[in-house]
Amino acid sequence: MAIDGVTRRVYVAGHGPAVIVMTEMPGISPQVARFARWVCAAGFTVYMPSLFGRDGAVPGAEEGVQVFRQTCVHADFRGLMSNRSSPVLDWLRGLARQALDECGGAGVGAIGMCFTGNFAISLMLEPAVRAPVVCQPSLPMDAPAALNMPHEELARVRQRLEREDLSVLAFRFEGDRHCRAERFAAYGAALGPRFEARELPDAAAHSEPPPFFARIVACPHSVVTAHLVDAAGHPTLAARDEILAFLERRLKGTDRVLP
């Protein structure tokens, strides 16, 4: 899909209001694709851009580390910089505008995970985006209490949230070493009560995630993908259902009945 002269592969499926699903590190794994299919099944059109890694792969630990290192130093991303936005966000905002044109409706949802977690908040600078979901935002990696956005952009996001009566839905595991409590506290301070934080107990994380998550991430981390337990009544599945209900309210103006 070509936007502002830059072409990226984007997987599109489903019907209904648009939701941009941004992959976690180290790429669009089967677990990320499974989550995207759940969003489709809930009555939305998913736009899932390929940002890094091998699409559809279950990378081993070594390959995952290589993708991580390459992405950190790529010009489109700023994995180690505090108070700076990643250049890829301009392209993603263009994708949101195009998705709204193609799907119509009240607006677009944006779901970020891990490396792309905070992107969902940055996309709120684009008026088309109305339903931001932040899952374990991990940038910047070397400063647990820092944020990957300029202060002035955060202030503009807060103003919009308050002006339009919107909110940010956010998830993390309590013991996540890559998205620590300090980061959620910083977002709460910057965005106020419009930042709706959810913290799951570590015991709720899947005990046998894929190799990259077991060996390199090495802590509860990916709430709705690699560490999700697909069992009725499980806290991680409840988190998924809360996300779907949030999208339903913001993009369709209705309340989804949870199972």
Rank of each mutant, 00 (worst) to 15 (best):
A110F: 08
A106C: 09
V46K: 04
H234C: 09
F115Y: 05
G64P: 02
R240A: 12
A145V: 07
D4P: 08
E24A: 11
G5K: 05
C135W: 07
D176N: 06
I111N: 07
N148R: 13
T7R: 15
F35Y: 09
Y187K: 04
F68R: 04
R249N: 10
C114P: 04
Y11V: 11
A18F: 04
R256F: 05
A205W: 09
Q66F: 07
V67F: 08
A245N: 12
G188D: 04
F213D: 07
R54W: 10
F68T: 03
R69G: 00
Q31A: 07
V229S: 05
E242A: 15
R183Q: 08
S207F: 13
R69V: 13
F115I: 11
A99N: 06
V88Y: 05
H74A: 13
E126Y: 03
A245M: 10
D76K: 03
G117R: 02
A143T: 15
D202G: 14
C103Q: 14
E182G: 08
I216G: 02
R250N: 10
G175L: 13
R172A: 10
A203H: 09
G107D: 10
M1P: 02
A185M: 11
S85C: 13
H234S: 08
F35R: 01
A239Y: 05
L247A: 08
G5Q: 07
R194S: 11
V65L: 12
A231Q: 15
P201N: 11
G192L: 05
A33Q: 07
G233L: 13
D202V: 03
S167E: 15
R130D: 00
G53A: 10
R163Q: 15
L166R: 11
A96D: 02
A238S: 14
E164W: 07
G105K: 06
L244R: 10
R250L: 11
P209R: 06
E174N: 01
P87G: 06
S122G: 15
G27K: 01
V19H: 03
R163V: 11
D142K: 14
L258E: 08
A2V: 15
P144I: 09
A143M: 15
A197I: 06
A120H: 04
Q70K: 15
A218Y: 14
A57M: 01
R9Q: 14
V134N: 03
D230Q: 13
R177S: 14
V19Y: 02
A110I: 10
Q98G: 04
A2G: 15
L161M: 11
V73R: 14
M81T: 12
I243T: 10
L169A: 03
G117N: 01
R250V: 06
F52L: 01
I243G: 07
G192D: 05
V12E: 13
D142C: 11
Q159N: 12
G64S: 08
V133F: 03
H15R: 15
R69T: 09
G64E: 01
V224E: 01
Q31S: 03
V10D: 02
L191C: 02
G60R: 07
T116R: 00
F173Y: 14
P87K: 10
L139H: 02
V10F: 05
M25P: 00
E162G: 04
H221L: 09
E208D: 13
